[in-house]
Design a protein around this nucleic acid. Structure first.
Lengths: 154, 154
DNA sequence: TTATGTGCAAATCCTTTGCAAGGCG
DNA sequence: CGCCTTGCAAAGGATTTGCACATAA
């Protein structure tokens, strides 16, 4: 990275980030970071790849995957729609919400019905609304207990 | 389907459903329906397949997929986590919510911050909460306009 | 009988991984 | 120079599709 880039605030921010995470500063990572940072379009892989290719024509799709996965693992970005995708089905016809356990992957139902009206009001201008669901992620009771047990008896 | 099954209320319900949808009543569909109906465990494909195999040992995984997909298409069940999976990334670090357009697939941000407290309170007993997001699905403004134009000029 | 539904095998598509070469520190 | 990164090729895994046979209606 040449010294000229030090004047670019995004670049400096990125270097600080890498330092914090113990990562090397590479052109690939910087280019991906530049495109993703503050980007509100929720880009899919190929959008990111395409954009980054304009700067680094030889970057591979796989590297973009790796870099984005690393960013997501460190919480630098958030991954919507993880491909931890196995089709799941829900036969409950009533409006309801879901709690996703990050540990065991199970999904639990709950109902916070005021969410519906609130989200509808807020998303009103974006289009016609079909359904509203609150999605909560965390660690379920059972997994919490397991972790506590493990911690107590080392 | 023999007449004995007519006495089973689930079966009768299922026959009515098939009639409404213009579907043939088959043992495979009935078995899948039986397992899924009222099932609150959000089963993945293999759980459904495994359960149905106990009744129909020769049913194929592909058929289970087809049947569940058909059910979901008709709104008989809801498909959580569709495998329309292409990884999507979101660089907005602030808590916020998402509007998914069913037509164009784009995702829009909005904020309905009261949702957080409400959902937390409701999901409180299920475990430790990491994040809360309202997920709204519908048809975005732009797609709505396109559909209206198409309808107005046939 | 006739069109729909199903099993089987194979194709797709997205994502991840192994490995050797490249490049940051 | 040594270890972390990357490109390339290939593997993996989930879901879908083509086709011939089975079966509701």
């Amino acid at each position: 990275m040449d010294s000229q880039l030090d004047r670019d605030p995004v670049c400096r921010e990125f270097r600080a980030l890498c330092r914090k995470l113990g990562w090397r500063v590479t052109a690939s990572r910087l280019a991906v970071y530049r495109f993703v940072r503050g980007n509100k379009s929720h880009p899919v892989i190929d959008s990111v790849w395409e954009a980054v290719q304009r700067e680094l024509p030889n970057i591979s799709r796989e590297s973009v995957y790796r870099i984005l996965t690393d960013f997501a693992d460190k919480g630098v970005i958030y991954q919507l729609e993880k491909p931890d995708v196995v089709a799941r089905y829900d036969s409950n016809p009533r409006r309801h919400d879901h709690f996703y356990c990050e540990r065991c992957g199970r999904v639990f139902d709950f109902s916070a019905d005021e969410v519906d009206a609130i989200a509808r009001a807020a998303a009103n201008k974006l289009g016609a609304i079909t359904r509203v669901e609150a999605r909560v992620t965390g660690i379920c009771e059972e997994c919490l207990r397991k972790e506590q047990t493990r911690t107590r008896r080392p």
